[in-house]
Nucleic acid binder design. Structure first.
Lengths: 341, 341
DNA sequence: CTGAAAGCGCTAACAA
DNA sequence: TTGTTAGCGCTTTCAG
């Protein structure tokens, strides 16, 4: 049904090889022949079959990207950085979404392997259970065996190329600031238990307390999906628990947003009654009322780096790019130190 | 380098044909042979080469989706609806982003055609210049010739399968409500001129005025990118123009958000001083302060429908699914009718 | 129930 | 400068 290279060859009165040569422009072809072939290609609307090419070439020019959720701004930002460099380098990006189901990550890697992608980039924190890690390591091995590579973006539960941030430091930065400004009952709205991100940000929260010689009240730590609704429901639970608290450190900006909404519904004011800090630095954070103080993750930059590694020839050793986070101080924190006011 | 079907065949002591048969489970194979082959597949970590399969099969099981911007929540929502049904039907989604450059749309369709995708879905308003439309129609023809199909999601500038909303009605709904509540100087923050969406939403704005026997002041209409910053800068221009206005109808929620921020920077209160209405109904709209009144587009539903058409066998006639928009009334509009206090 | 063989569309030696 | 030819990995008749 589709136009093939031999249709073009016939029309131009040359061999397939010649058509292939003008197509790839990697070989000298007489100008008149060139023109004739080019015309035939145009007339027929010929477009090369990438599958036939992939069967021969060692590389396909496509990079698979696996994210948790297409409608989460965090992934949107990271992916936009990736698109940027993929466009520059002429690569096609294949985006797959797991819909937050870690087991789909493995299935998706298999699909991408069958597509013979040049690399697979896994974005976001990963599950931490042994079964998953084993399966992941095996996929990484298979990928390498077929000439591809695995790039981890945002975490690195298995040895591989990776672009990472330090979630512990981030959690520390956020919590330390809250502690520094006099907060002493800080609730933590964490993510689902099985993710590395959840654990690490929580550890940062704990170590900041330790730096102040404090131990956080464990009843103040909650667990829910990394979403606006997850933050909202954790905050409702927090409120219903009836415990005193003067600040909230949410594991993501979206969760912080959900918490702010829940607080607002009860007439609790941010930051006068409760201070709130988020994590990620998604664009909307600065536009909330009040603007959200948050640990800024260089999302676009992470995406760029990960794609750069993915499209470059594999090095001997694993490349690990570590990117810093920083705290963006905005209106959602009040100063509650005794001296203030 | 990669494991092939003949490696598996050798290991299992059978022919390639037999391996293929157990792989596709579309043919009777003796149970003992089956097991032996399955074991070999597992031992070797064999994964079929999708390119070799695509070369033979008439279908690839992949659907290409072209969006304007990965980090725009509008596209995130639409794509999440698409992923949903693609997952159900076992299809792979290839997402390409044009970064808001319409000419890339054509290039991307070509890439997707060379990947022999079963369908290409174009999301979002399209450019309207003749050259682009011609090129698009030609790509649609080529796509059909190779057994694929083009599905338009959110607009239909060329005859094709499509899922659409009525932007004029939406613009009318938004503006009518503003007029009904007594606003008489309504600014319109529109999108870039070359997009159909821009023109249609503007037309709705004008026809609502006409319904009230009014003609909007043309100096109150602005043009900028469909983004938060686009809305912000248009609003700054509006403010600097020094013209009186009591409401803003923005072409997207993101633009409305940018406008609200610009207003806030000048100490102008929404809705007391100025009412604001957006368009799209992205999730964050309801969480703004005040919550944004907006024309809700069924984004997820549009995505689902578009993908459903894309994965189903082509019908004789073009399928056009029309989905309704509705106005979500929230806090960003004040009542300024003379009778209302 | 299983194997042999042809061929999908293309590229890359190797000849001419 | 151009043509011939041998596969790339897989599926699918057609035989057995």
């Amino acid at each position: 049904v589709a136009v093939t290279i031999s249709d073009v060859a016939r029309r131009a009165g040359v061999s397939q090889a010649t058509v292939s040569r003008v197509l790839n422009a990697n070989y000298r072809v007489a100008e008149t022949t060139r023109a004739r072939v080019a015309e035939a290609i145009h007339d027929l609307g010929y477009i090369a079959n990438a599958h036939a090419q992939a069967l021969i070439r060692s590389t396909t020019g496509t990079i698979g990207v696996i994210i948790h959720d297409v409608s989460d701004p965090y992934f949107g930002e990271v992916v936009s950085g990736m698109q940027e460099v993929a466009d520059e380098t002429g690569h096609l990006v294949l985006i797959c979404s797991t819909q937050r189901d870690p087991s789909r990550e493995i299935t998706h890697i298999e699909m991408l392997r069958s597509q013979r992608v040049d690399a697979v980039i896994l974005v976001g924190g990963s599950a931490e259970d042994a079964g998953f890690l084993l399966a992941l390591a095996e996929q990484a091995r298979g990928l390498r065996a077929q000439g591809g590579r695995l790039v981890l973006c945002g975490h690195h539960p298995v040895p591989s190329d990776a672009v990472v941030i330090d979630n512990r430091v981030g959690g520390y930065q956020a919590t330390f600031e809250l502690l520094r400004t006099g907060h002493r009952r800080i609730a933590h709205l964490g993510g689902p238990p099985r993710f590395s991100t959840t654990r690490e940000r929580l550890e940062g929260y704990e170590s900041a307390h330790a730096a102040f010689g404090l131990t956080p009240d464990p009843r103040l730590t909650f667990s829910a999906p990394f979403s606006r609704d997850g933050g909202h429901s954790s905050c409702v639970h927090l409120l219903e628990a009836g415990l005193a608290f003067d600040a909230i450190f949410a594991a993501t900006d979206l969760m912080a947003l959900g918490a702010m909404i829940a607080l607002g519904e009860r007439g609790i004011t941010v930051p006068d009654d409760v201070s709130v800090v988020g994590f990620d630095g998604i664009p909307i954070a600065r536009d909330l009322v009040p603007p959200l103080t948050t640990v800024v993750v260089p999302m676009v930059e992470m995406g760029r780096n990960a794609m750069r590694i993915a499209v470059s020839p594999p090095a001997e050793a694993n490349q690990i790019v570590r990117l810093p986070t920083h705290l963006a101080l905005r209106g959602s924190i009040a100063d509650r130190t005794p001296l203030a006011d």
